[in-house]
């Protein structure tokens, strides 16, 4: 079982080793955090499913959703998940520049996704479909918006991490950070697949 340095009462000589253990501890914590996030999304999905027919005379899913944009979003996000995977591969190969480069590509794709989503939301609001129109739209905006918020937070995180990487290079700490971020990014990708299926595809079907 992995033990953090504080457990070894370790001296300076195994400082690096100790850090490595502390980092694995943090990765585990992040996994558990993601599990709680799964529950949060699970609740939001459940709420959406309960409310999705309560359109209260407002626009319905078929009237509202424009699939080309959604498919573009999906494609962009899936690609960004792939590029974040490439970033991790570069990190393991010790290629700092390539790592930062792929992270940058990932961030740009993520930003593009958010831009598309925000545009989609704005269009809806212009059509008179706001969060306060009906139970269905409350559920929709909250579920999709929460996912978008997660992606946005991920973007800020990614930029911060790129700065840290360029200053400090690939160390056990930055390594763990990249791994955790990539985990987060893949997680958001999976959530998006569910959003695509439950919200958009089931909505227009």
């Amino acid at each position: 079982m992995a033990k953090p340095a504080s457990q070894h009462a370790g001296g300076h000589h195994d400082h690096e080793h100790g850090h490595h253990d502390l980092e694995s501890l943090k990765t585990l914590g992040f996994w558990i955090f993601l599990m709680t996030d799964v529950i949060i999304f699970g609740c939001l999905f459940a709420v959406y499913v309960v409310l999705r027919n309560n359109t209260a005379g407002g626009p319905t899913a078929e009237e509202l959703f424009k699939m080309p944009g959604v498919i573009a979003e999906t494609f962009i996000l899936l690609t960004s998940s792939f590029t974040s995977g490439l970033a991790v591969l570069m990190m393991h190969a010790g290629k700092k520049k390539a790592l930062i480069g792929w992270l940058a590509v990932t961030a740009i794709l993520g930003a593009a996704f958010i831009t598309l989503e925000v545009t989609e939301f704005i269009d809806m609001v212009h059509e008179g479909a706001t969060i306060s129109t009906s139970g269905f739209l409350s559920g929709f905006f909250t579920l999709v918006g929460t996912h978008g918020l997660h992606v946005s937070i991920g973007l800020v995180w990614m930029v911060g991490l790129m700065i840290q990487l360029s200053k400090r290079g690939i160390t056990p700490v930055t390594k763990r950070k990249v791994e955790v971020l990539s985990l987060y990014w893949h997680f958001l990708d999976v959530v998006w697949i569910f959003v695509l299926t439950v919200v958009y595809l089931m909505g227009v079907m």
Partner: peptide, 10 residues
């Protein structure tokens, strides 16, 4: 929003 309201499908 209308998650738990009486009106508009909450």
């Amino acid at each position: 929003a209308h998650f738990f309201t009486l009106d508009a499908g909450g």
